[in-house]
Amino acid sequence: MKRMILALCSLMLINSVQATEMAVVDFRAALLQSNIGQEAAKEPKQKVAQMEARLKQEQVALKEADEQLKREELTLAPDEFNKRRGDLVKKQNGIRQMAAKMQQQAKLLEKKLIEDLTPKGEAALKSIIDERKLDLVLNRQLSLYANSESDITNELVERINKDN
Rank of each mutant, 00 (worst) to 15 (best):
M1W: 09
M1P: 04
M4G: 01
I5H: 08
L6A: 12
L6R: 02
A7H: 08
S10N: 05
L11I: 08
M12N: 01
I14A: 14
A19E: 01
A19R: 04
T20M: 12
T20N: 09
A23E: 07
V25P: 06
F27I: 03
A30N: 02
L31V: 07
L32F: 11
Q33K: 11
S34R: 06
S34P: 04
I36S: 04
I36Y: 00
Q38C: 03
Q38P: 08
K42N: 08
K45E: 15
K47E: 12
V48Q: 05
M51R: 09
E52C: 02
A53W: 12
R54A: 11
L55P: 07
E58Y: 03
Q59Y: 05
A61F: 07
A61K: 14
A61C: 09
L62P: 01
E64G: 12
E64C: 08
E64N: 06
D66I: 07
E67T: 05
K70P: 03
R71W: 00
E72A: 15
E73P: 03
L74S: 10
T75Q: 13
L76V: 01
P78F: 00
D79E: 10
D79H: 07
E80N: 07
F81K: 15
K83H: 11
R85A: 14
L88P: 11
V89W: 07
V89P: 01
K90L: 15
K90Q: 15
Q92P: 09
Q92N: 13
Q92D: 09
N93A: 15
N93F: 10
R96F: 11
Q97P: 03
Q97C: 05
M98Y: 11
A100N: 11
K101F: 10
Q104V: 05
Q104D: 10
Q105H: 06
A106L: 13
K107Q: 12
L108M: 13
L108F: 13
L109N: 10
E110F: 04
L113S: 05
D116E: 15
T118P: 00
P119I: 02
P119R: 08
P119Y: 02
K120A: 13
G121H: 07
G121E: 12
E122L: 09
A124R: 10
S127V: 11
D130G: 02
R132H: 10
K133Y: 04
K133V: 03
V137I: 12
L138T: 06
N139P: 04
N139Q: 14
S143H: 01
Y145K: 04
S148K: 15
S150R: 05
S150G: 04
S150P: 01
D151L: 01
D151E: 10
I152N: 00
T153Y: 04
L156N: 01
R159P: 01
R159F: 00
I160S: 08
I160H: 05
K162A: 14
